Computed example of a mutant assay.
Amino acid sequence: MTDTRDLPPYIDRLGHGEICFPQPLALKGATAYAFGLDADPTALQALVDSQLNAACAPSLRYEPVGDTVLLTFLEVEAATSLSQTIGVQGDREAMIWVPLWEYREGATFPRLTFFVPYLLINVDTGLVVGREIWGYRKTIGEIDLMTDPGPGGFEARTTIFPTFSDSARAVENAPLIRATGHNASSALRDDFDDVAGFLEAIRGNMRHSRGLIETVVEGMAFAWDIGKLALDFVVPVVNLKQFRAAEDWTRACYQAVTESPAHLDKVHGGGLIAGEWTCSFRDCASHRIIDDLGLTGKRNGEWLSTEARFAFWVSFDFTTRNGITLWQR
């Protein structure tokens, strides 16, 4: 863990066009819509190996918890810095969540954490804050929610490259992710109203089948981590935070695995989303979501559609706290 007393002071640029507002951040009136998807653990491991373990193993190593990932769409009414008086701003985000086991040298049991390999956000401040402070892999995008006027459903759009070549032109505001409901209703069921109910709703969808020893050992660790989550209300997310070296694009001038703790301050309500939901992903060179997650389903041109295992919504307030540097080169 980094001793901040050894770090140089940050040269504050507030009032000079700064858009990286300091943590911690309080986010009020957040509503998330989540879809559980079947993923391939082998593909997930390959993704984690290339994007996390390639930097920090063997001192720190990650493995997927099982064969379920989450696609979420999020709307935040008001986000504000708790460190400086600046103002409030809302945003929308679409992201993929991969539950991971974290193995540390010398640790008896693995620890439950999460990895977000894809995250689209519609405001530049949120993009810069997430990237610069915690290392989130954020990109600018436009997001439609089922609560918007129109046909309903969810869609996330961003700039993509269908293929990579010297003459390939970027496609701006291109649809990348969709969630479509069948026999769906715009009315949301209210099935829980606290953090314990929320955790119970997701816990059963994160287990997996392995050998007896692994299941017992990891089951103990999982129960411990869920218990801590229920008591502390903190969701840990790990990222590879890095910046290219100015001298050589193949080198990093800074590289670290950081943890971004999100504290659930209050759950206002939540429940299942009615209907049968299909999540669709565009197959393109710049966003290899289908291959990275090992998704299967029906192909229609450059799109793949897969049935959601479950769908729920939750309304809450949360605080993004100071991060933790878990490993640094």
Rank of each mutant, 00 (worst) to 15 (best):
R244C: 09
L37K: 01
D292L: 05
T80R: 14
F114V: 10
F114D: 02
W313I: 00
Y136V: 01
G130V: 03
T68F: 05
N173F: 10
S260G: 09
T258N: 11
I202H: 07
V88S: 14
S50P: 04
A107E: 10
A311H: 07
G17Q: 09
L231F: 06
R288D: 11
G271V: 08
A55H: 13
G66S: 05
S260C: 14
T158K: 03
V257H: 05
E102Q: 14
A221E: 00
Y254E: 09
R61E: 10
P41Q: 03
D124I: 06
E247Y: 06
I19F: 12
D144N: 05
L145N: 02
D148R: 06
R207L: 10
R282F: 06
W313M: 02
M95C: 09
N53M: 12
R61S: 06
G29N: 03
R178Y: 07
G36P: 01
F243E: 11
F243Q: 09
I86Y: 01
T68D: 04
W277C: 12
D190Q: 13
S167T: 15
A311T: 12
V65N: 02
V116R: 03
R288G: 14
P236F: 03
T320A: 12
A54C: 13
V234K: 08
A34P: 00
Y62D: 00
D67Q: 11
I86T: 05
A184V: 11
K298N: 05
A174D: 09
E105G: 09
P41V: 10
D148I: 03
P24I: 12
F316M: 15
A54N: 14
L119Q: 01
G150P: 01
L100C: 15
A170L: 13
